[in-house]
């Protein structure tokens, strides 16, 4: 590859370096990713640094306000809110990554196939996408999760992924559709490349930024859906999540008792993660789309 003629090969590298140049100078992108990174590290390292104490253990007097010892105070039962918070963050990122990842995968398979093949497969897949698009996701998840006796984070993420892909599939299909008649795709087809390889090597790389942004939105969507499910009482049966913390807080009248340190942090963290991802997404759009650059 290194011996390839210089006038064709350097191009992707230049594009990548240019993207990086704009990326580090884009305030939205840097801020967004910084917020996500800080919270991700808190979720990953927090449980390790706090030792092996289970998050639902009763460790102190109940209803303590935030202090140096208990950063976020304690619950009505004397559980440490900060310990629950860091464990909950971990769960939130896991559900987002799993649900968003599975949804992105299905969306890519459906979108690429429908957009590139056209004809009957396109008709069938578009119909399927439209049908699933109309069904309210949360309502399906409610019924499914209610029948699952034991619920885990992985299963929750799996079902969220299985139900939240349609809009992304539609978007990817439209993009693929506009790329498939370009000269370089025709050339690849003429040179005898198979469909799978054309999609993987010619089409997908040309919309990689778009795919990444779709994944970010699917990730944020998964986090929000999971927190709603948890809040309704269909969250993981074991462990903690930010949605479960909110559910417990409202169920045990934290509102009436004025225990704001119990219900403010989990919701604020969800908002911060999802909001930061959305803002980073706008930043990414500006980096990859020269028309949107303002500076």
């Amino acid at each position: 590859m290194t011996a390839a003629p210089t006038e064709t090969r350097p191009e992707p590298r230049v594009v990548r370096r240019e993207a990086l140049h704009f990326a580090v100078r884009n305030g939205k992108l840097v801020t967004g990713f910084a917020v996500v990174l800080v919270l991700l590290l808190t979720g990953l390292l927090g449980p390790l640094l706090l030792g092996s104490a289970p998050p639902n253990e009763y460790v102190a007097a109940p209803m303590l306000p935030p202090s140096a010892e208990h950063w976020f105070g304690t619950t009505t039962f004397g559980q440490d809110v900060f310990t629950q918070f860091v464990h909950g963050l971990r769960t939130t990122f896991a559900v987002g990554a799993l649900g968003g990842g599975i949804a992105a995968l299905i969306a890519m398979v459906v979108g690429f196939t429908a957009g590139y093949r056209g004809g009957l497969p396109d008709e069938a897949l578009t119909m399927l996408t439209n049908v699933i698009l109309v069904i309210p996701t949360l309502a399906v998840l409610l019924v499914v999760n209610a029948y699952l006796g034991v619920r885990g984070v992985a299963v929750q993420g799996l079902f969220i992924g299985l139900t939240s892909w349609p809009w992304a599939a539609r978007a990817i299909r439209a993009q693929t559709f506009s790329l498939r008649t370009r000269d370089f795709v025709d050339l690849a087809r003429l040179s005898g490349l198979g469909t799978g390889r054309i999609i993987a090597r010619e089409i997908a790389p040309n919309m990689s930024s778009y795919l990444f942004m779709t994944f970010i939105l699917l990730f944020g969507g998964s986090v929000l859906i999971a927190s709603s499910l948890d809040f309704i009482g269909l969250g993981p049966t074991e462990g903690v999540s930010l949605g479960l913390m909110l559910q417990n807080a409202t169920q045990w009248s934290a509102l009436q008792l004025g225990l704001w340190w119990w219900f403010v942090p989990p919701g604020a963290a969800i908002t911060a993660v999802v909001g930061a991802l959305y803002v980073a997404n706008v930043g990414l759009d500006e980096v990859f789309n020269p028309k949107l650059r303002t500076t």
Binding site: L224, T250, G267, T271
Partner: peptide, 10 residues
């Protein structure tokens, strides 16, 4: 980005 139930709680 705000979860509906959190704004409601607040």
């Amino acid at each position: 980005a705000t979860p509906y139930m959190w704004l409601a709680v607040i």
